[in-house]
Every structure is written in C-alpha cells, then in structure tokens.
C-alpha cells in the first residue's frame, strides 16, 4: 500500500461527507457529514505519520488525539444546539430556520 491510496480514500470520504452536509436538510445529518469530514482529516494525519520519514516521531498521533477531543466537543455543543432549536421551532430541518432571512 502506498500513501496515495490512503489519501485518495480520505479525499473520497471527505467528498461524501461534504455532499451529505450540503444536500441533506436535516440538521443532525448535516452534523454527521461534518463528523465524516473531520474523520477523513484524521486519517490523513495518521497516514502521513506512518509514511513520511521526515515526520517527527509522534506528531501525527498527538494531532489526531487533539482533533478527536475537539470534534467530540463540537458534536456535543452542536447536538445541544439542535435540541434547543427543536424545542423552539419544533423542527430540525435547516430550511425551516428562516428567522434571519431578509
């Protein structure tokens, strides 16, 4: 296996997550798409760490740990926001949130 196999797979996963985040109308599914994109980035970190001899000994792994922590915080706050929005509007469809629409 070569580095570009992992990078291409990760780009494909990123594109799938981006397509989901852009086309789905449910806020929870948009958040799932964002999570997929973050995970694709994590796979890139690990692949570069494993394949590039110039990379410092453990930077890739530590970067992935920090990213996982930030993404978990993002998911918790995002889902809490979705629940608060649902309480207010009785909907999680992003199309229905038009209060700021001019």
């Amino acid at each position: 296996m070569q580095l570009h196999h992992y990078l291409l797979f990760s780009a494909l996963l990123f594109a799938v997550g981006l397509a989901g985040a852009l086309t789905r109308r449910n806020a929870i599914l948009v958040l799932i798409g964002v999570e997929l994109m973050l995970n694709a980035a994590n796979l890139n970190f690990i692949a570069f760490w494993r394949f590039l001899p110039e990379a410092p000994a453990m930077h890739g792994l530590l970067f992935v740990l920090f990213t996982i922590a930030v993404a978990a915080a993002e998911a918790a706050v995002g889902l809490a926001l979705i629940i608060a929005i649902y309480r207010h509007y009785r909907s999680t469809q992003v199309d229905d949130l038009r209060s700021l629409h001019g």
Binding site: M1, Q2, L3, H4, L7, L8, A11, L12, F14, A15, V16, L18, A19, L22, T23, R50, F51, L52, P53, A55
Partner: peptide
C-alpha cells in the same frame, strides 16, 4: 453533489500529481 465531486476532483488531482504521495514505503 456537484460541489462535492469538484472538491474530490481537485484533491485527487493534487494527490496524484504530488511527488510526496507516491514512492514512499511505510516507515
């Protein structure tokens, strides 16, 4: 979907033309 495909095309082109991405064995 078109935007996603375009993003993937750009990424794939960059990856496949990069000298960094090929020719490295696993360290």
């Amino acid at each position: 979907a078109g935007i996603a495909v375009a993003v993937f095309a750009v990424l794939a082109r960059v990856i496949l033309t990069s000298s960094l991405a090929t020719g490295h064995p696993m360290v």
